Amino acid sequence: MKEIICLHVGQAGCQIGHACWELFCLEHGIQPDGSLLTNNCLNEYDQSLLTFFEDIAHKYTPRMLYIDFETTVLDEVRSGSYRQLFHPDRIITGKEDAASNYARGYFTLGQKLIDHVLEQIRRITNHCHSLQGFLIFHSFGGTGSGFTSLLMEHLNINYSKKTCFEFVIFPSPKLSTIITEPYNTVLNTHISLEYADCVFIVDNEALWDICTYSLNIQKGNFVHINRLLAQVISNITANSRFKEGNIIDFNEFLTNLVPFPRIHFPLVSYAPIQSIDKAYHEQNTTQSLTQELFHRNNQMIKVEPSNGKYMSVAIIYRGLAVPINVNRTINKLKNERKISFVDW
């Protein structure tokens, strides 16, 4: 089994990560203390579960690291309901905040923390039979930008043949609370361009709009946004975590989704997105779901899809999707020319 290690950097990365592990545990029937549910005997023989979890004396521990310079967010993890799930050594905090300053995360505070982080990564990799790569969760404009750049440079040196994927929060066009966000983003994007194999980008403005207008959440907060992102990440990684269906590794993603090595910043779209009131009155067919994916209201970044052309598209269906219906839907999209691709 090819293992995957998740690295959650900064406040945004740690909060998204906590929502992801909460969802992963629910999907696999793992309790907050790391043990399997008593009536869940199927996962005992499911080796694909070990892609993201370690089995230590019938207790499942995530293959991950939480990394943040200040302790507020991670103290919530240490005292929360899932505190027994995580290994204490894999929750790493500094003594002072980087204040969303790229230079502090890269040069000063990051240099003090990087050796300890690399040592913990080395320990996790020693428990892997065949490491596939890394998933890094962070924000381009926030605290995690500087330290993520430093970390990726070291990962490229120590694990140069391993795949590196990123899930990042990109700055929003109109919604911003950090004055240094544009500078952090430019510097961090350069590192991601060089060292990451694929970077999935979303922005808070699009996510807020989805929560407000599509899900009808009147008083949304970051918990709603993080759980929405967790659904996307769960679907992308589902083929690695479950033995049913085709097992797709990172290299297959890169082959089908990345047309050129340096053009590896795909946009994220998700369907269906429906409020609780509408969920039981909608009929979700393969055709309707596929058409929704290409609508701007379902995209998790503020762009107008009709103004440009697609270079490549990867659609992941989860559930009972009949291949015949999928082929018919794709052919209909091509014939109606609702989406346009670049001319190769």
Rank of each mutant, 00 (worst) to 15 (best):
E153N: 08
N216V: 10
S145F: 07
F140R: 09
K243L: 10
I179P: 00
T148N: 09
F200R: 07
N239L: 09
I201M: 15
F250D: 03
V186D: 10
I169S: 15
Y195A: 03
G141R: 01
G141L: 01
F250S: 03
T148F: 04
I233V: 05
L228P: 05
E166T: 05
F137W: 12
I233D: 08
C211I: 08
N158M: 15
F165V: 07
H138N: 02
I157Q: 14
K219P: 00
A196P: 01
C164P: 00
S139L: 08
L155S: 01
T143K: 11
T177E: 15
Y195T: 05
I178D: 08
I236R: 06
N221G: 14
I247L: 12
V199K: 01
K243D: 09
S160D: 12
L175F: 15
I247T: 11
D197Y: 09
S192E: 10
R227A: 02
S149G: 14
H138W: 06
A206C: 10
M152K: 12
S234C: 11
F200G: 01
I247P: 01
S149P: 01
L150D: 01
F222D: 12
I191D: 04
L155I: 07
A230W: 08
V232L: 08
S234L: 09
Y195D: 06
I210C: 00
S139N: 06
I157G: 00
V223T: 14
D209V: 00
L193R: 14
D249L: 12
N204Q: 09
L155T: 02
V232C: 11
V199G: 00
K174R: 13
K219I: 10
P173E: 10
G245L: 02
F167M: 06
Y183E: 07
N158S: 13
H154D: 11
I236V: 06
F200Q: 03
F147C: 09
I247Q: 13
T180C: 07
Y159T: 01
D203Y: 15
R227E: 08
F250A: 02
N251I: 11
N216E: 15
S145P: 05
P171A: 05
R241A: 00
E166P: 02
N204E: 10
L151V: 08
N235D: 07
D209R: 03
V202A: 12
M152Q: 13
N239D: 10
D197A: 07
L207V: 10
K174T: 15
K161L: 05
N204D: 11
N251M: 13
T148L: 02
Y183Q: 02
N188Q: 14
T185G: 01
I179Q: 00
